[in-house]
Amino acid sequence: MPAVELSHVSKSFGSLRAVDDVSFNVDRGEIFGLLGPNGAGKTTTIRILLDIFKPDHGQVAVLGGPMTEEKKNHIGYLPEERGLYQDIPVDRCLQYLATLKGLSLTEAQKRISEYLERFDLASYRRKKMKELSKGMQQKAQLISTLVHEPELVIVDEPFSALDPINTQMIKDLLREQRDRGVCIVMCTHQMHQVEELCDRLVLIDQGKAVLYGKLDEIRKQFSGQDILVKAQTTLPTLSGVARVAGQNGATRLSLAAGVTPQDVLRQLVQLNVPVEQFEIAVPTLDEIFIRVVQGEEEGQE
């Protein structure tokens, strides 16, 4: 049974349709990317999922059914609008938030100590939250998201304000959570992070789900007729190639209609070209994102 199921969900604010017939499922033990340009409806979708907003239409099931007060104890949420109590010490703030997730004070103290050690924040535990840097507050917020060992984790831009070392640590942590069977919904604009972490994704634009599925399949779907070739010598003129362009030290060949990569490879072998790299040019998620979003906008015009 999926941990999250959204089925034909719509939500309007006055005349503005923020979410329009969006459906997707997220399984346990996967990292799921929730993508979209600014104002696409991602945050509204998350708020519907968390029962902050009621949908106008459609069904939402979280951890096997409608949201309940008890289920809130099994959900960890890192909102886009970061927020922690600024005027109290770090450990007191985290303890309060952890106890609101159903942990006993003793258990909360124990787990928070472990996380503070792991996140290099142990020496800051008595400091007021406002005395911490933005990156440290981000880590503290992640602790409050994970400390109660949730079954469903929703993280909105989890890498903002983090340096590369801490970014890597958070990635490892998210993978670790996934391996424990936790369902993770990650909302971000950083496409390379999605490529690195996510198994599946949904792309929302103007309130609608315009892409949904496994990352590999989506990339294949957008791969087209391009191949990347790197050779020790300059490439000869090849038949069936419509366009040639350089890309990161390799050559990107756009094939003419009806020509297959095997046709090109055969020619290279016959011409005895010393090939170092030959691969189907799969578009990056950035490219797919831009292509889909711009395509949607052009479609609107």
């Binding site: 909102p79 609008e81 609101l100």
Partner: peptide, 11 residues
């Protein structure tokens, strides 16, 4: 403090 979203997803 922008803590509202965290709080209302807990209580």
């Amino acid at each position: 403090n922008r803590t509202m979203e965290i709080i209302i997803t807990s209580v």
